[in-house]
Design a protein around this nucleic acid. Structure first.
Lengths: 127, 127
DNA sequence: TCTAGTCTTTCCAGTAACTGGAAGGTCAAG
DNA sequence: CTTGACCTTCCAGTTACTGGAAAGACTAGA
């Protein structure tokens, strides 16, 4: 796969994929004769994983750590399990925060249904 | 409330709260004699809201838009409802992505339980 | 075989959203 | 009335991209 195809499939700009290669977060599996970056399904999967993690607010360094969990040779060690569990906790915390954001916004939508009621409950709620 | 207290309650660095004031995302409700920024519960709530939105991957400009939904005088208009609904959809999409991230990571933890099995299913899965 | 159009490369500058540090003013306790 | 923990502004640095220029590579059609 060339960079444009993997970008399209991973739903990331080519610029970003190139950047991830530069900082060695997700390296291409090789280069063509002409120097074109080449990608396989493995890298595609990693890129999708990183996109999700980034969109969910994890930093590049955290993504590196998360990806590392897949590649760690000593994957069975308690250390790796501990890191993964910590990250799982962080993800769950994010899910809760996102849910609160959702509920708050849903409350706005529901409270102000577009009818003619002059007093919106959200005004009292937020002021 | 002074800046350090509101920062503590909102769980944001004071630097960030000051920055949000600078870019007029969440302005303090006033200034003391000496020029200290002062905050009320309204601003605290907004800061918490923004923290959640930012941690969930919304940009500053999107946060501005989201906050705007609370303050729009014409809150009953179809426009505002449309924007809010669009944002709700985005939040739901983020929740799905986060869930996939969670499942993928939980799979790693569960598959490699720290016992002595030499072959970890995740290796086949990701390579 | 040439050429147009669409890849791709590297490099460099710019942006977004903080973040750290310096220099200095404010306030409350002892 | 000083000490220490606040607060202020300003400016420089970092992270994670993002856009654009200049130039090489590949593919389809005349």
């Amino acid at each position: 796969m060339n960079i444009s195809e993997v970008s399209r499939l991973a739903q990331l700009p080519t610029k970003t994929v190139r950047y991830y290669a530069d900082i060695d977060l997700v390296a291409p599996c090789g280069r063509s004769e002409a120097g074109y970056r080449t990608y396989s399904d493995t890298e595609l999967r990693k890129l999708v994983f990183v996109r999700r993690a980034r969109e969910s607010g994890f930093s590049i360094e955290e993504c590196r750590e998360l990806l590392g969990l897949y590649e760690d040779d000593d994957r069975n060690s308690a250390d790796v399990k501990a890191i993964a569990s910590k990250k799982l906790k962080e993800i769950k915390a994010k899910q809760r925060e996102l849910q609160m954001l959702h509920d708050e916004l849903a409350h706005v939508v529901q409270s102000c249904r577009g009818d003619d009621r002059p007093n919106c409950p959200i005004i009292d709620y937020l002021s």
